[in-house]
Design a protein around this nucleic acid. Structure first.
Length: 433
DNA sequence: TCTGGGGTCCTAGGACCC
DNA sequence: TCTGGGGTCCTAGGACCC
């Protein structure tokens, strides 16, 4: 195979094994790999509890394979620890882990990808730390384990996509938690794969469309005429073809012009809603939540989009799962103006369907210079919050401010002061009392 | 997976401008 | 005014990721 024009670098994609669950183990003085523990969010609308993370032993002992499963899948067993999430704690650990990574790469070669994944380009620095990239990977693992008690999974490749595939397909299933992929291993390690959905960027829908083209393995994908893929999938088709050959021309250091960010909240309702006044109450609350986040980020929104998801029965009757409609608004972050726009969109497009899902998203953001005073909360409460805000701001500077967000939820029937602190939709773990 | 939550990117088609 | 074409912006919908 001829890969001459392709860059040949040393890229690590590092993630944390069962991150939330492992952090909870370490702060309890328990071993992350030898403790059966799940982290479960029990927000009002999770319909009985959503499992966010499962420790490796809990997966093995109780067959909890799915990354995200439900409370009803849990066995009744006192030996299984069930704990609530503390998102703020996980954010702090993520920062600590990335600080360790900075001992091995300069800032320009480090790209945090999510709360538990980072991409490191060690092309120019790995020789400083060991005889082989593999040895350096082990050193990073040992360092993080010694200092934070956490276990890292590392994919090594000649470019980011190879590292990602090495991580997902190999590192996660080997005892040393390290997987490698390089150009000369593509045929041997990538092409035999027939479960297409196990490959990053391919999910159920795309796998089905590939099957319709008689593409049932990465080998057949790699040997399909690119023009056919392009015709069927557009740009995504050429990306899939490149992926099947392990090719990825993204450059870590080069900052890509990012698309306009958005801020929004969504909610699966705890039951079906059919009454207009009730739906509009939910929409107003959600709009206030979004407006609060806009103010927190000192942004104003110039567009607002409303997404309504129908109940299953209503979806079948309607032929659509729901609808999305957007409108331009004079830039604002005020509760009442945002809510009014959302209600307007709802009344213009809703035709009486029973609904189960609502989402509000705002875009065309612009800076809201000037301090917004919050009249509804005690000063002490706001001071308390600034601690978490500072942490969130630090994350924001690394992930982009929409990657991890600080959401507030106003409790139904509660006083205006009685707000829960949510991070990424789950409990932040900060005691406000 | 009879419904988690917060995002991003791609595309087709229509409106509008010159 | 029995008529052209290219470009841009916007919207809705689809798909995927963590």
């Amino acid at each position: 195979m001829l890969y001459v024009p392709e860059s040949n670098r040393v890229v690590f994609l590092i993630d944390n094994k069962s991150f939330y669950a492992s952090v909870e183990c370490t702060v309890r003085g328990l071993h992350p790999l030898e403790t059966a523990l799940v982290v479960m969010s029990e927000q009002a609308n999770t319909n009985g509890g959503l499992i966010l993370a499962t420790s490796p032993l809990a997966k093995k002992r109780y067959g909890l394979q799915a990354n995200v499963s439900r409370q009803r899948d849990l066995p009744q067993d006192d030996a299984l620890l069930v704990v609530p999430p503390r998102m703020t704690l996980y954010i702090q650990r993520n920062l600590a882990i990335n600080d360790i990574f900075r001992r091995f790469v300069p800032d320009t070669a480090l790209c945090p990808y999510s709360i538990d994944e980072s991409i490191l380009d060690l092309t120019h620095t790995w020789r400083l730390f060991g005889p082989t990239p593999y040895a350096v990977a082990q050193l990073i693992q040992h360092t993080v384990r010694a200092e934070l008690g956490l276990y890292l999974t590392i994919g090594i490749g000649c470019n980011p996509v190879q590292a990602k595939l090495a991580l997902d397909l190999y590192a996660k299933h080997t005892p040393d938690l390290i997987g490698t992929l390089s150009y000369d291993q593509i045929a041997e390690k990538l092409w035999p794969i027939t479960d297409l959905t196990s490959v990053w960027s391919i999910a159920h829908r795309t796998a089905k469309r590939l099957h319709r083209l008689h593409i049932t393995s990465l080998y057949t994908l790699a040997h399909t005429e690119p023009a056919i893929l392009k015709h069927e999938f557009g740009i995504v088709g050429t990306q899939l073809f490149a992926l099947s050959w392990g090719i990825d021309r993204a450059e870590l250091a080069r900052t890509v012009p990012t698309r306009a960010p958005s801020i929004g909240n969504s909610q699966v309702l705890p039951r079906d809603y059919a009454v207009q006044t009730q739906i509009e109450v939910v929409l107003k609350e959600l709009a206030e939540q979004v407006a609060a986040r806009l103010r927190h980020h000192r942004q104003q929104a110039g567009t607002v989009a409303l997404t309504i998801g129908f109940s299953y029965a209503a979806s079948a009757a309607d032929g659509r799962g729901g609808f999305t409609h957007a409108m331009r608004i004079p830039p604002t972050n005020r509760d009442d103006l945002l809510a009014a726009a959302v209600i307007h969109l709802f009344r213009a497009h809703w035709e009486g369907q029973v609904i189960r899902n609502v989402a509000i998203s705002t875009g065309a953001l612009s800076p809201d210079t000037g301090e917004q005073l919050n009249l509804f909360e005690a000063v002490s409460t706001q001071v308390h919050r600034s601690d978490l805000a500072r942490t969130t701001d630090m994350i924001r500077s690394r992930f982009g401010f929409t990657k991890l967000v600080y959401a507030k939820s106003k409790l139904l029937g509660g006083t205006a002061i009685d707000r829960a602190s949510l991070v990424g939709g789950h409990n932040g773990g900060n005691a406000y009392e």
